[in-house]
Nucleic acid binder design. Structure first.
Length: 286
DNA sequence: TACCCGTGGGG
DNA sequence: TCCCCAAGGGT
């Protein structure tokens, strides 16, 4: 299976800016932060701006949190922007402005978990390092295990599954890792997989079994309308859009339910996504 | 381990 | 319209 993916990927891969040969590990790291739960299409323009503006960790570390949050715009989950900013500072001050290349050091950085650490090692440094994201888990569940979907994560087993697939040498392994993700993103999709154009179709256990439907537990769908998440988004949007501090009245206009609004504003302050000045007005953090 | 954390495009 | 979700991480 790895050989098929290895042959398929170079010509099939989308031309994404963070995949260009001249992209630095820092560029890869920034892309991985932005791609955590945000679609490629929305990340592309922002990533390009960010790398032009902050080409090294130290450059980003020198910016204020407010600048970073404004530049993050509406990518969503703005705490990622704060963690990336924090990580940039740690890399600048403790790693000589060089993005670490080993998984353990990467995982110690804010906002970097198992997936992101491995993605940076593999795609930023071309290492043989199993990368397991939702796409890879689905591809392995189908092609290897013959199941329609991956179900709940089994971290150690998932890593072992992928590790068993990777060729021994660094470069080929990194290409296969990227290829497995690409396969899940554009061919072996969650709904309406395009088996007709799949490079692995002849070896796919799921296809061989007649594409049985997934019967395991479904992950509950997260609601959004009316949640604190929506309210926080509204409030932060007001702060992002303002040139400077805003009166409480400006935030009051963003959501009717006063109790929920107050709770959310407080949580933004706690998270460091907003701050209150001595005059009582609110703003993005300095 | 569930649950929380934003946003907007597509079926 | 409404629902699903898209390269996760932290707690």
């Amino acid at each position: 299976m790895a050989a098929l993916v290895l042959d398929w990927y170079p010509a099939a891969a989308r031309d994404l800016p963070w995949r260009r040969a001249d992209t630095t590990p820092w560029g890869v790291l920034v892309s991985e932060f932005m791609l955590q739960q945000t679609p490629v299409a929305r990340v592309e323009p922002v990533w390009t701006e960010w790398l032009a503006r902050w080409p090294a960790p130290s450059a980003m570390a020198a910016a204020s949190r407010a600048e970073v949050l404004r530049a993050w715009g509406k990518l969503g989950y703005p705490r990622r922007a704060l963690r990336l900013h924090e990580t940039a500072g740690v890399i600048a001050s403790e790693h000589g402005d060089v993005v670490p290349s080993d998984v353990e050091a990467l995982e110690a950085l804010p906002g970097i978990g198992s997936y992101t650490a491995r993605a940076v090692a593999a795609f930023g440094y071309g290492r043989r390092c199993p990368v397991v994201d939702t796409n890879v888990r689905r591809v392995v569940a189908r092609a290897v295990h013959g199941r329609g979907d991956a179900g709940p994560a089994r971290t150690a087993a998932d890593l072992a599954d992928v590790d068993a697939l990777l060729p021994p040498d660094d470069h080929s392994a990194a290409v296969v890792s990227a290829g497995l993700m690409e396969l899940g993103a554009v061919v072996c999709t969650a709904r309406a997989p395009r088996c007709g154009i799949c490079p692995v179709r002849e070896e796919c256990a799921w296809r061989a079994a007649g594409r049985p439907e997934y019967t395991g537990p479904r992950r509950p769908v997260q609601g959004f309308a009316g949640t604190d998440r929506q309210v926080r988004g509204r409030l932060l949007d007001v702060l992002r859009g303002a040139d400077g501090p805003v009166e409480r009245a400006a935030l009051d206009a963003a959501w009717d339910d006063a109790a929920q609004r107050d709770r959310c504003l407080d949580s933004l302050l706690v998270d460091g996504l907003a701050e209150q000045h001595d005059d009582g007005r609110f703003a993005l953090p300095a």
